[in-house]
C-alpha cells in the first residue's frame, strides 16, 4: 500500500475530518465548539460520499460544446452532496439559534454549567432531589419517602 496514493490521502482527509468532528463533539464542553464539531463531521461525511465513486482522471459530468469526455465522474453522489451542503447550512443556523436561546436562558454556553442549572431547575420545580453524580438515578419524592419508611421500620 503506497502511502502517497491519492486515494489514501483523500480517504485520510475524509476520515480525519470526521474524527476531528466527533472528537470536538465528545471532548469539548462549549456549545459553539460542539456545533463546529458537527460542521466538521458533516464536511468529512460529504467528502466520503463524493469519494465513494471517485475515479482518478475523470472529468466533471458536463458536456461542453458537444464533446463527450472519455470518462466522466459519477453524478449521483455529487447531486446528493449538493443538497446535503445546503441543508447543512440550514441545520447549522438552527443549531446556532438554539445556542442563542440557551445563552439567553442560562447566561452561559458551557454545557457543565447548563447541566447543573437544569438539575437545579428540575429540583426546584418538581421536587426531585439533585443527583449526586450524573450517573446516579434521580430520587423522586415518592421513592425517597419509601426509602425512609424502609430504613425507619
Amino acid at each position: 500500500m503506497d502511502i502517497l496514493d491519492i486515494n489514501i490521502i483523500l480517504y485520510s482527509a475524509a476520515f480525519g475530518l470526521m474524527l476531528i468532528g466527533i472528537g470536538g463533539i465528545v471532548i469539548s464542553n462549549h456549545l459553539i465548539r460542539i456545533i463546529f464539531g458537527i460542521a466538521l463531521l458533516e464536511a468529512g461525511a460529504n467528502l466520503l460520499l463524493l469519494l465513494s465513486t471517485y475515479h482518478e482522471g475523470a472529468s466533471a459530468p458536463i458536456i461542453v460544446d458537444g464533446s463527450v469526455p472519455a470518462m466522466m465522474a459519477d453524478p449521483v453522489p455529487q447531486a446528493l452532496v449538493l443538497t446535503a451542503i445546503v441543508i447543512g447550512v440550514g441545520i447549522l443556523a438552527l443549531a446556532l439559534s438554539l445556542a442563542i436561546r440557551v445563552q439567553r436562558a442560562y447566561g452561559t454556553l458551557d454545557m457543565r454549567e447548563v447541566r447543573l442549572k437544569l438539575e437545579q431547575e428540575i429540583s426546584e420545580n418538581a421536587g426531585i432531589e439533585m443527583p449526586s453524580s450524573s450517573h446516579a438515578p434521580a430520587v423522586t419524592t415518592a421513592n425517597s419517602a419509601a426509602a425512609q419508611q424502609e430504613s425507619g421500620s
Binding site: 480517504y11 459530468p61 458536456i63 459519477d74 453524478p75 449521483v76 447531486a79
Partner: peptide
C-alpha cells in the same frame, strides 16, 4: 480503492443527455 461498487452513475452518464437535454448531468440527477 480502484473499484467502486456503485455503477448507476455510468448508466446515467450514458443516457442523460438524450433523456433530459441538460448538458450538466448533476442537474439531470
Amino acid at each position: 480503492f480502484s473499484n467502486t461498487a456503485v455503477n448507476a452513475g455510468q448508466a446515467i452518464n450514458a443516457v442523460a443527455a438524450e433523456e433530459t437535454g441538460a448538458a450538466n448531468f448533476v442537474t439531470s440527477v
